[in-house]
Design a protein around this nucleic acid. Structure first.
Lengths: 193, 193
DNA sequence: TTTTTATGTTGATCTATATCAACATAATTT
DNA sequence: AAATTATGTTGATATAGATCAACATAAAAA
């Protein structure tokens, strides 16, 4: 059950996990399934665990006062999901996270974070994903302040081509910060080129 | 000379530094001054150190093909600056970082990163700033995909009021992803309210 | 199978923000 | 002090993208 996570940690940290390490992880992580549309986290709740996606897809979004959903992150297999701000600061989350597909995860409750962080490979992995997360967020900021919607869409296609298969266009549009109509028009523009 | 950094590490990690820790840090960190407009990092170079700002202000920006500067980060005292992507991946940076004011920093060369990361308080601080950096980047992404320029400006005023004193409006505008003219108009709107 | 809901497209119009231009003033440099 | 450069404002016009509406089709539910 935990093998994909073990592989992930070893790959990111370039360090093999000992049997001891694995048993610590086995104790900490909880397997869970979510049906489509089921919430992993709801606005106002405190995010008490980060989840490693074994299978499926999730969206993290914020709902504005008009009820519009603004998609902050889309996640698929081998990604960690959770509201980091709420998780690390123990504050109520401003976001919802729900399963877009039938999803299976390994939950790491915050109560075990210290314990598993004693494993060097896990700590390495954590630093690694935090860095990559920051770098990705920074790129997205750069895109949003300096590129057109069309260019941002092309970047998304390049970086995460699988998203197009797994999420409908209005979700992708929201992730890009544009409307579904605009995305539809951008797509038909690109086909002509 | 290193006292502000010691204080910063202790505050973020909630752990006092031993004399031993301090001497490791003293060995690793290099004091440097930059004059106004001087580069800390130039596009194409590999970012070989992160710098803790003791005094002054810097901007990190990307220059597009038309020569327009797009400001990605603005940093002042007690912030770490550097292109994390280039630093961690050893790839040429896409950004420039320059001193907006006369600036004094403590440089941490990457060659010392392992050694100082052996200090638990330093490691704690690193995790802490990485997390905060991610959280801040995520908020900026959310702002850019779901808020108007006016709202983003108000958020900036709330989060970093000192920026208005230390950077001119066209820099702030670029940071917000709008033109200086639009920012000027937004400001006059807000005064009327 | 029929109905309902989710998804995607296209057109008309509107709006936030960009662009271009002129000008004013403050701060530096000569 | 004069000249130059950096900063900030305001107006006219252009444009990317939003909004509203209608329609088409695919998928899911009844």
């Amino acid at each position: 059950m935990l093998n994909p996570l073990f592989a992930y940690i070893e790959a990111r940290s370039h360090t093999p996990l000992s049997d001891e390490d694995k048993s610590v992880l086995r104790e900490a992580l909880v397997y869970r399934r979510y049906k489509k549309k089921q919430f992993l986290l709801q606005e106002g709740d405190i995010c008490k665990s980060l989840s490693f996606i074994l299978k499926g897809a999730t969206r993290q979004y914020w709902v504005d006062d008009k009820g519009n959903e603004h998609i902050l992150t889309l996640s698929i297999e081998n990604w960690w999901v959770g509201d980091r701000e709420s998780y690390f600061k123990d504050t109520p989350s401003a976001y919802n996270i729900d399963a877009w597909e039938e999803t299976e995860v390994l939950m790491l409750p915050k109560t075990y974070l210290e314990r598993v962080s004693a494993i060097p490979a896990f700590r390495e992995m954590r630093m690694h994903i935090d860095q990559n997360y920051s770098i990705a967020a920074q790129k997205r900021v750069l895109g949003s302040i300096s590129h057109s919607a069309e260019k941002r869409f092309e970047e998304l296609l390049k970086s995460y081509p699988e998203f197009m298969q797994r999420f409908p266009q209005h979700i992708i549009a929201s992730y890009l910060g544009i409307t579904k109509e605009t995305l539809s028009r951008i797509k038909s523009q690109l086909v002509k080129k």
